[in-house]
Simulated scan of single mutants.
Amino acid sequence: MTSNATVLLLAKSNVEPALKAEDVLVAVREAFTLHSLRAGRVFPVVREKLHTGGVFGIKSGDVASQDLLGFKAAGFWPGNREKGGEPHQATIVLIDPSTGRPLCFMDGNAVTTARTGAAGGLGLAQLARKNSTRLCLFGSGVQARVQLRYALRILPALSEIRYVSASNEPDANFEAEFSGKCQLSLARDRDAAVAASDVIITATPGGGPLFSADAVQPGTHVTCVGADTAGKRELPAGVLDRARIVADDAAQARSIGECQWAPELPVVEMGDLFTGRATFERGMQDITVFDMTGLALQDLTVGRFLYEQAKEKNDGTVVAWPW
């Protein structure tokens, strides 16, 4: 019996086409809900800098009622750009909680991108003003693009997008992707773009403050994506003190997110808004911040539906994995 055991491999070519936005939104919302109800566990995060210049991390967890167990090994290797590769690398592993045997290895890059974009979109739906029309986006890479795609989906009134690129020069590929979907232009003056925006999304490597604190106007919503490691930040000092803060996980945000810079401030967890354990009524003058550090449960709920879907469609590669 054990000699017939197998494991399913899902490569990028299997994963990317299966990540439909509506399915990812449902799975990520479920992860938030499980976390709020403590029906799913999030284990301590590993996030360490390497001698190679990269950052390596592990996010893991389980949902006992669903026999769902697994982890994502991921990180950031900036040197990959010189090799023509993607700096973010991730692999998700689903494990049988009864035996410890691996069920599936899947490419985690596309999963990370999609579930983070969906989480940002759900945050906008909960926290941003519904009539928001102007957005300032920091970044024009993979994560910036998915955040903008979900933002345009969630906030249909958005029409004017200002973006800041890493080079401070126009990004032709980025602009081409969103041509005809919104009015898109490069922000030459960061603070002016921030001050004129209803929504700010920061999706950079988290190398330091991106704008002046006093540029953020009352009523603005800020989604923070890039701070996911001790020492990283995108917000300047003073913004969190003025804001109502929501995080995917409060303890994690205070450890590796923007909240590490102001751990004494009160934080509401996003999942509690979905389950009703917390309430949130936005005042028109409120500044809101969604501090996103990423939940292992998001990787697991998205990974689970990809695994089950692949089995139904006989997709992927089955490999012998005897005991």
Rank of each mutant, 00 (worst) to 15 (best):
Q252K: 10
A203V: 03
L300F: 00
V164A: 08
T317R: 14
R129Y: 01
K83C: 03
D191L: 04
I161V: 14
Q260D: 10
A73M: 11
V267W: 04
V26K: 11
A11W: 06
F274W: 14
D272T: 12
P87H: 04
A118S: 15
K232E: 13
T112C: 07
R101W: 13
A253F: 08
G123M: 08
R162N: 11
A11T: 07
L94Q: 07
C224E: 11
L306N: 07
R162G: 09
A11D: 13
V142Y: 06
R188P: 00
V55W: 05
P236G: 11
G53W: 05
S60L: 03
E22F: 00
L19I: 04
P78V: 00
V146G: 04
P17E: 07
R29Q: 14
A278K: 05
G226R: 11
A213G: 12
T229M: 15
F174G: 01
L210I: 08
A128S: 15
R134M: 10
Y307D: 05
D248P: 15
V222A: 13
C259D: 06
E269V: 08
A114W: 08
G54M: 09
A166L: 15
V7C: 12
A320V: 04
A27C: 06
L297W: 01
S197N: 05
F76V: 03
T99V: 06
G100Q: 11
G40I: 09
F274C: 07
A39Q: 12
G180N: 01
V289H: 12
V55T: 13
D62L: 08
A192P: 02
V26T: 05
V318R: 11
T6S: 13
A110L: 11
V319T: 01
L155V: 03
L300R: 00
G207E: 14
E22V: 01
L137N: 06
W261D: 09
R254S: 11
R282E: 07
L210W: 08
G303K: 00
A5Q: 10
F178K: 03
R81S: 12
V318N: 06
T220N: 14
T204V: 04
H221A: 15
